[in-house]
C-alpha cells in the first residue's frame, strides 16, 4: 500500500465531527424515548379485542417493518410535504421517520413482553380492583419491559447506527459531516475510519451491557420471579434442588 496517512485532517476537523456526533446522539435519544412511549399504545392496540383496531395496528407495524428505512425517510422528507403542503426540516423529518420505524419494531417487542406476563397476575390485579390502566402501568408494562430489555436495547443500538441514513436528507449528523470533510479533503480513509470509530465507541459499550443483561437473565431466570440457578449451581454437591412451578 502506497498511502501516507495524514491525521491532521482529523485533528483539524475534530470539532466538526464532534458536532455531527452530538446531533447523531440527540436524534437517537429523542427517537428512542418517543418510540418507547408510542410503542405502548401501539402494542395495546395490536392486542385489542376489536378486530378493526387490531388490523389497523398490524397494518402500521407491517408497513414500517416491510419497507426500507431509507424509503420511509425519503417519503417523509420528500413525499409528505407534497401531500400536506407543509415543508418539514430535515432533522424533524429524520426524527419522524425514525420514530415511526422504531415504534413499529418496539411495539412488537412490547406485545411479546405483554403476552409473556402470566394472565393470573393480571387477574390478581383485577381481583384487587385495579383499573385497566393501573394493571397496565403497574403490573404489565414493568414486567414486559424487563423481559424484553435485551430486544429493546438491540433495537436501540441498531437505530443508533441507522441514523447514518439521515445524512441522505442533508441532516448534518456524524455521517454527513464525515462525508463532507472527506469530500473536501480527499482524506476519506482517515475521516471515515474515525467516524466509524466514533459510532463503535458508543455502540460497543451498549452492546457489552446488552450481553451482560442477557447473561444475567439466563442465569437468574426470567421476570416471573422464578429464580433459576444455573445447571452447574444446581448440581453442585450439597445443593438442595428447589423445584418451583
Amino acid at each position: 500500500m502506497n498511502y501516507t496517512f495524514d491525521w491532521s485532517v482529523v485533528t483539524n476537523n475534530f470539532p466538526r465531527l464532534l458536532d455531527g456526533l452530538l446531533l447523531t446522539v440527540e436524534i437517537s435519544v429523542i427517537v428512542i424515548i418517543l418510540s418507547m412511549i408510542f410503542a405502548i399504545p401501539v402494542a395495546l392496540l395490536r392486542m385489542s379485542k376489536i378486530e378493526v383496531v387490531r388490523w389497523l395496528a398490524q397494518l402500521y407495524i407491517e408497513i414500517f417493518r416491510c419497507t426500507p428505512l431509507l424509503v420511509q425517510l425519503f417519503w417523509v422528507y420528500y413525499a409528505l410535504p407534497t401531500l400536506t403542503g407543509i415543508t418539514i426540516p430535515g432533522t424533524i423529518s429524520a426524527v419522524i421517520a425514525l420514530t415511526l420505524n422504531l415504534t413499529a419494531f418496539m411495539a412488537e417487542a412490547y406485545r411479546s413482553g405483554f403476552q409473556a406476563v402470566p394472565p393470573e397476575q393480571v387477574e390478581a390485579g383485577k381481583m384487587l380492583r385495579l383499573t385497566r390502566f393501573q394493571q397496565i402501568r403497574h403490573i404489565i408494562v414493568p414486567q414486559a419491559l424487563k423481559q424484553q430489555l435485551p430486544v429493546i436495547m438491540s433495537l436501540d443500538i441498531s437505530l443508533f447506527k441507522d441514523t447514518a441514513l439521515v445524512s441522505t436528507i442533508a441532516v448534518a449528523d456524524l455521517m454527513f459531516t464525515a462525508n463532507k470533510i472527506s469530500t473536501e479533503s480527499y482524506r476519506a480513509l482517515e475521516i471515515l475510519s474515525v467516524a466509524a470509530l466514533m459510532y463503535f465507541l458508543i455502540a460497543f459499550p451498549a452492546s457489552l451491557i446488552l450481553s451482560k443483561i442477557e447473561r444475567n437473565m439466563m442465569e437468574t431466570g426470567n421476570v416471573r420471579g422464578i429464580r433459576r440457578k444455573s445447571l452447574a449451581a444446581q448440581m453442585a454437591p450439597g445443593t438442595k434442588v428447589e423445584v418451583k412451578p
Binding site: H138, P142, Q143, V223, G225, P245
Partner: peptide
C-alpha cells in the same frame, strides 16, 4: 393456584 404475586 399459581403464585400471582407480582415478581418485580
Amino acid at each position: 393456584q399459581s403464585y400471582t404475586l407480582w415478581p418485580h
